[in-house]
């Protein structure tokens, strides 16, 4: 398996560390209800199809990368730096 790091190019997957679905980057706001935290920490979709995961280029440039991959074909359709995404919306804030 090969992953294209936006900074380093296509590299063997052994250079990367996997860290699950990219929703983990959407951290709930301070004071969010326990259910929101539970959802954020533990509940994940398990699609047969496109999924966006987090990978860490640990043996490379230390970038965290969002990798869009198809769980059926294993085809990787897109990669981008986690730092490049728009500021995430905070879920579950208690106003």
């Amino acid at each position: 398996m090969r992953i294209t790091c936006p900074l380093c190019g296509a590299r063997d997957r052994r250079e990367f560390t996997y860290y699950g679905a990219s929703v983990y980057a959407d951290r709930p706001a301070e004071g969010a209800a326990p259910e929101v935290w539970d959802d954020y920490l533990h509940l994940r979709d398990n699609p047969a199809g496109e999924i966006t995961d987090l990978w860490y280029h640990e043996l490379g440039c230390s970038a965290w990368i969002e990798v869009t991959r198809n769980t059926v074909t294993h085809a990787i359709s897109a990669t981008r730096l986690l730092a490049d995404r728009a500021t995430p919306t905070k879920k579950g804030a208690r106003s």
């Binding site: 980057a25 987090l54 986690l82 490049d84």
Partner: peptide
């Protein structure tokens, strides 16, 4: 040591990239 480095990079890049 490795886990913390990974964690700090994640927090910086995911939560406060600017």
């Amino acid at each position: 040591a490795g886990q913390v480095m990974r964690h700090l990079d994640f927090v910086a890049q995911a939560h406060c990239p600017a």
